[in-house]
Design a protein around this nucleic acid. Sequence first.
RNA 1: GGACGGUUACCCAAGUGGCCAAAGGGGACUGACUGUAAAUCAGCUGGCGAACGCCUUCGGAGGUUCGAAUCCUUCACCGUCCA
Length: 376
Amino acid sequence: MNKKLFSFELLHKQESARAGVFTTPHGDIFTPVFAPVGTQATVKAVTPEQLQQTGASLVLANTYHLYLRPGADLIAEHGGLHNFMQWSGPMLTDSGGFQVFSLSAIRKVDDEGVTFKSHIDGSMHRLTPELSVAVQEKLGADIIMAFDECAVPDDLEYNRRSMARTHAWLERCVTARTRADQALFGIVQGGIFPELRRESAQFVSSLDLPGVAIGGLSVGETKEQMHDILEVVDPLLPQDKPRYLMGVGSPEDLINGVMRGVDIFDCVLPTRLARHQAAFTQTGRVNLMNSINTRSFAPIDEGCQCYTCRNFTRAYLRHLIIAKEMLASTLISIHNIQFLITLMGDARQSILDGTFDTFAAAFLERYQPNHKKEHV
RNA sequence: GGACGGUUACCCAAGUGGCCAAAGGGGACUGACUGUAAAUCAGCUGGCGAACGCCUUCGGAGGUUCGAAUCCUUCACCGUCCA
């Protein structure tokens, strides 16, 4: 590990909440941070320029999808992922581990690796820790993830075996890697079981990697279980390394995560919800296609500084939705991404100011996850 | 003037005696979405009701029948053809 290329500085802590800066070859990541997901080398519906304007720093892409199409060699020939998709900021590639979980109907896991049936053309493929690392080295993101198994969270025996396998795979990933300009993050697993999570957190921490991820959450367990696991893991993870909670999430989950020591989040939620006509506001989520917005000449969220809210009304967005115009997806994606990025930026500032507890309490108080009330 | 064919819910469109408050589309409306097989999926769409159910509907009016969107008569309108 080249310490000059990657470094994490913890600037301030308020109880478990942390404000820091993670330095990568493609720029600094100010934490806590939300990272938009661009699985197929694109954050759906937005251009890199638009993405940059939301304040995004770190962006994700997925090894499994890009390995299948267009192939890692092509992207390597193209000068790597940054050049390919024209994102000049920090990037992270997921290892394909999540697909081991989400494509459960068409895969088989063993200790060596995973055999997949491609969702694109039905062809068979085998992914191993070594291949995942090799592919991620060709893709060339700043942060690469260990190849793990994200198990169904509530089966103790399965999680015990799966966790052991994930640990073994992590050691193989460490051995397999060859590039010094990429930071490999290990992943803590263990389902909803505190004793497994403790063991996993200690094992992953012991390898002295540049960052640690917490996987296997927000996959069906309750919010309380997720919070409990974060609290179990928090004191066991190194203070001087960034912690990345994979696949999370909603605005309230982000705040609850920061409160429990998480620095980095990623999630498809803002962009998926946007394509499905839902938007975040300070008081909860709204479905913009609802008829109540027909004559709403207000922005999605009063006070939001995003491009969409500065320029367009709910009435216009609803019109685009009803008319099935693709600009709706773009504009709402811009808003939702900027909402989460701003939320994390505000949380960061409050940690630096020492006011995170009141900031978090106020947000959780006003933000209703499944709100039913009207918004004008 | 005559001969056929047609008129079904917001729209299109099945349905030719009871299993029809009425298939299927579309549209409208509502909900879900957390390391993206997702510009997707689900529900709902005569009224009242939580539900059993009750009430009102298949161009209008009248009739046959235990029972009619469905059969008969007539009127209106639309289409095609013949004068």
